[in-house]
């Protein structure tokens, strides 16, 4: 029993016979602090403030770790030395070059993956026949970890760009297809039947109703699975590459440059946040009707 409850109880039992000043009626219901309310809403200022506190606490953890483990095998570089290593990497001309090489691989592979995802996903989400046909094989293949394909792709496709792009595709395409199929399934049936009764044919309905309705969802799916694309890229580059961000990671490892490795991790994080913000902006720009 909570202390408030015990304090209130005699008050509730015999309010009228209690002598002294007229009793203030006890408030009904439990008051909750807005920060701790389930599914509550926060004012904008509080949200911004909390987000800032979140970033600061991450930095603080890093700073703390770097002072606790400042030397030895388990060494954490300070944010400042990481920054210095990053600048060094940049001025040596490597970082820009590697960033470009890695980004190009992700961009090509992910574009292919999304193109397949949109076509197959909308097909599966729109036609029960394609769903019945495609879902079982996709479901089977999907459980093969895409990273397990790495040696196979290296064997088949050599060690140039092709296996890296192929890994990015293989690691994301099934998620893109299945998630975009879900997005296409969410098109209200009333909307489709309305289009039909207005004289639209199947192709017109797909192009003018299913696709535009699915578009913001497709951008969201792209946003979520982009992280998977970078994951596959790193796997590919760690094994066989002579340029790229993960290649620099292995090089830094050889020279025991923990600060350089941290700088590259930060670059990954920055790319992630930047592409996330871009896709969010794109979604709101191209589908203002679906702004959340």
């Amino acid at each position: 029993m909570t202390p408030e409850a015990t304090a209130v109880e005699p008050h509730v039992r015999e309010p009228s016979v209690a002598p002294g000043p007229a009793p203030v009626p006890a408030a009904r219901g439990r008051r909750e602090h807005p920060l701790a309310r389930l599914r509550g809403e926060l004012p904008m200022a509080a949200r911004v403030a909390l987000a800032a506190v979140g970033v600061v606490s991450l930095l603080a953890c890093w700073l703390l770790a770097s002072t606790l483990w400042s030397s030895g095998a388990f060494r954490v570089p300070t944010p400042l030395s990481t920054l210095r290593a990053g600048v060094e990497l940049w001025t040596d001309g490597d970082l820009g070059h590697d960033l470009l090489a890695s980004s190009r691989r992700v961009a090509v592979g992910y574009a292919i993956s999304l193109a397949i995802g949109v076509v197959a996903g909308i097909g599966i989400g729109s036609f029960a026949s394609l769903e019945a046909y495609g879902e079982a094989p996709i479901g089977l293949v999907r459980y093969v970890p895409a990273t397990a394909l790495t040696p196979l792709f290296l064997l088949w496709l050599g060690i140039d760009e092709a296996p890296k792009v192929a890994l990015v595709v293989a690691g994301t395409v099934f998620y893109n297809v299945l998630m975009i199929a879900d997005v296409a399934r969410a098109v209200p049936r009333d909307m489709v039947t309305s289009a039909y009764t207005l004289g639209a044919g199947r192709w017109t309905v797909l192009r003018r109703v299913v696709f535009p309705h699915s578009w913001p969802g497709i951008v969201d799916v792209a946003r979520v699975n982009l992280a998977g694309a970078w994951l596959m890229l790193v796997v590919a580059e760690l094994l066989a590459a002579n340029e790229g961000l993960a290649f620099q990671l292995t090089r830094a490892y050889r020279f025991r440059r923990v600060d350089t490795m941290f700088a590259i991790l930060v670059v990954f994080a920055v790319i992630g946040v930047a592409s996330d913000l871009f896709l969010r902006w794109l979604r709101n720009r191209t589908a203002p009707w679906a702004r959340s």
Binding site: S194, Y196, L198, G199, H213, W289, A290
Partner: peptide, 19 residues
């Protein structure tokens, strides 16, 4: 045989194209 523009239909809602 199937739906066509000669028979317009209006249902309860959620059928307008929101974009």
């Amino acid at each position: 045989a199937g739906p066509g523009p000669d028979r317009g239909m209006v249902s309860q809602g959620y059928s307008l194209f929101p974009w």
